[in-house]
Design a protein around this nucleic acid. Structure first.
Length: 320
DNA sequence: GCGACAG
DNA sequence: ATCTTGTCGC
């Protein structure tokens, strides 16, 4: 007989990143009573983060399960919503709901799935290692995604550091059910990156991800997530800042620290003659110094070769 | 009006 | 990220 104390845990899926956004959204939307409306912000709060309100708006705008009972904080309704709202007895004047406060429904109940995801990010941040865990860096693999409707094309490119030649590249197509929400990028893109990673045949020493690593509000950007989940040295490379402040590096090859709450969270590197720097931060098993040095050695243009080549492959893969 | 948040 | 034509410049 197996004691429950010694038995292995049964599918512990808590915050595993398997949240299906459309399903969670539907659970919230179904709570809005007939004759009442709510706002994108209220829905976002029910999901666990008011900052997802724009994502809720975008998602509902294209989803076929769009509800006519969700409007913006000003009570402005879309043309296609107006007839349905009036049929429920809601007065709409000049595209705007009259007396919004009177029909506004705020008692949405949910398990705040985004809050669970934030907790998972804190767990990721807790195990991130900001020290080098590799010998020579011979091959670097970059990942990038391109989108078409509900599908993502995820490409990878393995580059030989010696000559910056591409020695392997491939693409995978994956269904996407998570919108872009700032600071939750990993839940949109990681599943596709993982699938693509499983197809890499060459030995790779370092992974490059299109997005931030440590330079994230919870120090758990997609670079950290990928590194921790795959157990590989990983660096995040972004084209704009998510958090923090920095200065523009004056000369090509120069870098400046990115500071957030008095902490160095990454570096801005002027990787080309372009005035716009790229932002580099460790994901996992890499130091700040090595992150900058490695990325710098991979730049023929503003974007390091593994990412630039992956981007080209992903974009090319969209057509079929 | 200000601030502004990867892809 | 995506929507999008031509155009300016190295």
């Amino acid at each position: 007989m197996i004691s429950f104390l010694t038995a292995p845990p049964i599918s512990n899926n808590r915050g595993s990143g398997s949240m299906m956004f459309s399903h969670e959204l539907e659970k919230v939307l179904s709570q809005i009573p007939e004759g009442r409306v709510t706002t994108f912000g209220e829905v976002a709060k029910a999901l666990g983060d008011v900052r997802a309100s724009r994502a809720v708006s975008d998602f509902l705008a294209r989803s076929r399960q769009r509800s006519h009972r969700v409007v913006n904080a000003q009570g402005k309704a879309r043309p296609w919503q107006i007839e349905s709202l009036r049929n429920e007895g809601i007065a709409v004047i000049d595209g705007r709901i009259r007396d919004l406060d009177h029909v506004l429904f705020r008692d949405l109940r949910a398990e705040c799935p985004l809050k669970l995801l934030r907790e998972e990010q804190r767990e990721v941040a807790d195990v991130v290692v900001l020290e080098d865990d590799f010998e020579d860096v011979k091959n670097v693999c970059g990942f990038d995604l391109a989108y078409e409707d509900d599908r993502a094309v995820c490409a990878f490119a393995v580059v030989d550091v010696k000559n910056l030649d591409v020695i392997e590249k491939d693409v995978v197509v994956k269904e996407i059910d998570f919108p872009y929400i700032p600071s939750y990028l990993t839940y949109r893109e990681y599943p596709a990156i993982r699938t693509a990673y499983e197809r890499v045949r060459n030995d790779v020493d370092v992974l490059l991800i299109d997005g931030h690593g440590y330079s994230h509000p919870r120090r758990a950007g997609i670079g950290c997530h990928v590194g921790v989940k795959l157990g590989k040295p990983t660096i995040g490379v972004a084209k704009s800042l998510l958090v923090g402040k920095t200065r523009t590096p004056s000369r090509v090859g120069d870098s400046e620290r990115v500071l957030h709450n008095d902490e160095t969270i990454g570096y801005a590197l002027r990787s080309s003659t372009s005035k716009r720097p790229i932002y580099i931060s460790p994901g996992h098993l890499v130091s700040f110094e090595s992150s900058v040095r490695i990325v710098k050695s991979l730049c023929k243009t503003r974007i390091p070769e593994p990412l630039r080549q992956a981007h080209l492959a992903a974009t090319a893969g969209k057509g079929g």
